[in-house]
Design a protein around this nucleic acid. Structure first.
Lengths: 151, 151
DNA sequence: ATTGATAATGAAAATCATTTTCAATAAGTG
DNA sequence: CACTTATTGAAAATGATTTTCATTATCAAT
């Protein structure tokens, strides 16, 4: 199997290529959702019924550390994970969160303008606040079509 | 005592004006930090040693529901609370989060441009995704001056 | 002001996501 | 193949938040 970006990054870090790690990465690559650790665990059980939830947590932490995965907190008490959008598998996007049903929708509108502004802001923040920026998130909170009810 | 915005909002909702609620609102008004429920609880204990942590959680939930307070998840496992920035007590701002020491800094740079872009984006999202947007957050993650170490 | 209905409170127990511990297992190296 | 050590899975521990329930405080109506 051809070595992928994330595998190279792992090997540079001295990490081992294991079945659980391959499986979890596969699941992340194939989903277009925003799975929690448990969502991923349940998926993984279908392929490897002996995998442990602990391993899922640890593997996700590892992926986050090597920059292959991004972790999001949308405010519903559990972390959610997505492949980092720099590599081609996913384009840069942000999130719409329904405050009622907690559904999450990706959007990519105005990314050009947004990236411009973010670049400018990042520069300003780097100098004015002496912060080295690594990444940013934009979340829109509101109500999805299904949850907009005439009150 | 003069009734404030949040009190009116509470009364419209049929909620009671109680000592714990007044106290917690006072604490929120006086801080310029990003306190967690427990932070607020500890503050509150100085004034009212019999207040319960449970009440703090419930009160914060209530304030969030009536729109007086905004809840943030910066990814360190505990929610943080701030007065909503529409009223004059706080101006519209976003956050810089240090990924190492977890410190949080407010920033207000480029708010004019940001609000313009966000307005445009909100409009687009409202129509294209049929989402009714209530608010948005922008988080920048990186490393603060203290935590930038030559590695 | 007193009363009464009921919303709000506080303490303790329960829940839920996540982390830690530790003995057993599997990866990569020689 | 054998060895060193990272990784795993199960169970227990943790920590934030929520629920339960008996008691207390608020507010509206007397």
């Amino acid at each position: 199997m051809k070595a992928h970006r994330w595998q190279n990054r792992m090997q540079c870090g001295g990490f081992r290529r294991t079945h659980p790690r391959e499986l979890i990465m596969k699941i992340l690559k194939e989903t277009d959702k925003h799975p929690s650790a448990e969502d991923i665990y349940i998926q993984a059980l279908n392929v490897n019924p002996s995998i442990g939830l602990t391993t899922v947590y640890r593997t996700l932490d590892l992926f986050v550390q090597i920059g292959a995965v991004q972790r999001f907190d949308f405010g519903d008490g559990k972390a959610r994970y997505e492949l980092t959008d720099n590599p081609p598998e996913k384009e840069h996007h942000h999130h719409l969160i329904c405050m009622k049903c907690k559904s999450i929708v990706d959007y990519t509108d105005f990314m050009k303008e947004e990236l411009e502004l973010m670049k400018k802001t990042e520069d300003a923040l780097s100098t004015q606040h002496q912060f080295k920026i690594v990444h940013h998130t934009v979340h829109f909170y509101g109500y999805c079509r299904k949850c907009i009810s005439p009150e």
